[in-house]
Write a protein that binds this DNA or RNA. Structure first.
Lengths: 146, 146
DNA sequence: AATTTTTTTCAACCAAGTTGCAAAATATCA
DNA sequence: TGATATTTTGCAACTTGGTTGAAAAAAATT
């Protein structure tokens, strides 16, 4: 989920000035096929440089406004973030009830669902999110279940 | 979304002692077809009696464990709660980006989606959530759009 | 080089949610 | 009934995630 993206180019295309920190945030987000908490992004960046949390919050806020980062509401109070560039179209997420990790799933065709939801709504809908909750493989094993 | 439920009976059926506060929490949740923040539930209850927030948090936690209340992760930091008894089977939600309100939508058939997600997962999935985001009718009007 | 603009930091703050323990209410049983 | 045990609620203090406003630092513009 990482190498395919040219982060420098991504920023330029969106007319955002390229800075070490913004690159670092994108790199953190691209480092695995899952959605990250801010504190995880901070930890990732801090392996190399120092950052203030406010900066990261503001960068993420800015990027999601511009649409190349997605903010994903999940169980628990810390929101998750993921890349939303061309290589990462919207997709469902799986969240483990035990460890809280949020994993990205393959996109599923949702035209039907969209139709049904969009039609009779009376609101203007522009985004559809699917979240599957359960117990992930690792946690299941850790509990001694097959 | 309210009157259909016999809250006293609901508690008894689940072997939970019936207390004024527990009834009040259920009554608050049943008061509209949407999902509520804790602070809204508190406000609703406080129109009649006094409560401590901790109590409500604990009651909601307990009820969701037992499965007759659902906790719904949404955009923004405060989680939402809704009834999950027989009369309120799982359903998608619509959340307005502007006002944040979370409205309940009619259930949609999701067997297909379930199949696709459940199969290749490797995890044990037990819950599927759909969240539609956008601009609600009211907020759209408030902005002078048709 | 001087000035303006943008980016990052710092300190202080707010709101949601949690913890441990005491007080109040309720049930159990001699 | 009254004494004891259990459950429920309240209180105070705290943690965590996130926000605000303004200053410092860095970069762009003249």
């Amino acid at each position: 989920m990482s190498d395919a993206c040219d982060f420098r180019g991504l920023l330029e295309r969106h007319q955002v000035r390229v800075t070490p920190l913004r690159l670092a945030v994108l790199e953190a987000l691209g480092s695995a096929s899952r959605a990250f908490r801010v504190r995880e992004i901070l930890a990732h960046i801090r392996r190399r440089r120092r950052v203030h949390k406010v900066t990261v919050y503001r960068i993420l806020e800015d990027f999601s406004q511009r649409g190349f980062v997605r903010k994903i509401p999940v169980e628990g109070k810390a929101a998750r973030f993921e890349l939303a560039c061309e290589h990462h179209p919207p997709h469902p997420h799986f969240q483990c009830r035990a460890c809280g990790e949020v994993e990205c799933l393959e996109p599923v065709p949702l035209e039907q669902v969209w139709q049904e939801l969009r039609g009779p709504l009376g609101h203007r809908a522009d985004r559809l999110e699917i979240r599957v909750a359960g117990l992930c493989r690792r946690c299941r094993r850790a509990r001694g279940e097959p």
